[in-house]
């Protein structure tokens, strides 16, 4: 027989897709497995016992949490505007809000550094110093994390019908109150996903932080900075141990987002 039946053609099609997916997954697992095998629990505990690394773990957790909350505060109103608003220039605004996502991370850091050298930036610095400070770490994380949170909230509001909000308005709510009482509670899973994505993205942020907030030990050192500092002095074991910690935290966020259900 020269031609295969539709059934066997379909099978071949699905088998090919499964093989491609399996190879990709295998590559990811091989990367992580090789990194994990490179270190021992002893190295790991010793690295995490170091005062500098404990500081960087604490600072990473604190700044990522602050960034996630700030990103959510921005992403909810902006995501709602993009989803429900009807105005001229909406598509241009939508594209402009993706700029932080497509900019090279180092460039984001450089842009921040230059912004805070302008008269406007200096005026802000007099109130809250950002350059080479912990506030600068949060700001550098926020620029990129918030853009991802806005994308997520935009998608969340797109999936929620505006009808319940309309009904709430006919029952006596203003638009704002209808959003607060009806839409925001319905968007809670999307809000959790947006905050988690901003948190996870901030955890891995390195370029903008290095340029804008610096890499000063026990001051603006976060986990990616630690990996870079340890690598630069040839302490590969500590760099691997910290990398594995970041992998574990990222996995935790991934599982949490999946469990909460990213789709609303």
């Amino acid at each position: 027989m020269t031609t295969s039946s539709p059934r066997s053609r379909v099978s071949l099609f699905w088998i090919s897709l499964a093989v491609i997916t399996a190879l990709y997954l295998l590559f990811i697992l091989a990367m992580l497995g090789a990194t994990a095998a490179y270190t021992t629990p002893h190295h790991w505990l010793r690295a995490l016992g170091s005062r500098e690394i404990r500081y960087s773990v604490g600072l990473s957790l604190a700044t990522c949490t602050a960034t996630a909350l700030l990103s959510l505060l921005l992403a909810v109103p902006v995501g709602y505007l993009l989803s429900r608003g009807r105005f001229r220039g909406k598509e241009a605004l939508d594209a402009a809000l993706d700029i932080p996502i497509v900019l090279p991370p180092m460039v984001v850091g450089l842009c921040l550094l230059i912004l805070f050298q302008t008269p406007f930036g200096r005026a802000i610095e007099r109130l809250v110093p950002f350059t080479y400070t912990v506030a600068g770490v949060v700001l550098a994380q926020f620029v990129i994390g918030a853009a991802f949170a806005v994308r997520t909230m935009h998608g969340t509001f797109d999936h929620l019908s505006s009808r319940p909000e309309d009904v709430a308005m006919t029952l006596g709510c203003s638009r704002g109150r209808a959003v607060w009482l009806v839409t925001i509670p319905a968007a809670r899973r999307g809000m959790f996903a947006a905050a988690s994505i901003a948190w996870a993205r901030s955890l891995g942020e390195f370029g903008p932080i290095l340029v804008f907030a610096g890499a000063t030990r026990m001051k603006t050192e976060v986990l990616p900075t630690t990996v870079w500092l340890e690598l630069s002095v040839g302490n590969l074991e500590a760099a691997v141990a910290v990398s594995l910690l970041m992998v574990a935290l990222a996995m935790l966020v991934l599982v949490a987002v999946r469990l909460a259900g990213e789709r609303v």
Partner: peptide, 21 residues
């Protein structure tokens, strides 16, 4: 007048119940 001051009751096609209440 805003919708809430018109003294109306509105039942949309799918009910549009508030999802979390």
């Amino acid at each position: 007048d805003p919708p809430g001051e018109r003294g109306i009751g509105y039942v949309p096609q799918d009910g549009a119940l508030f999802p979390t209440m």
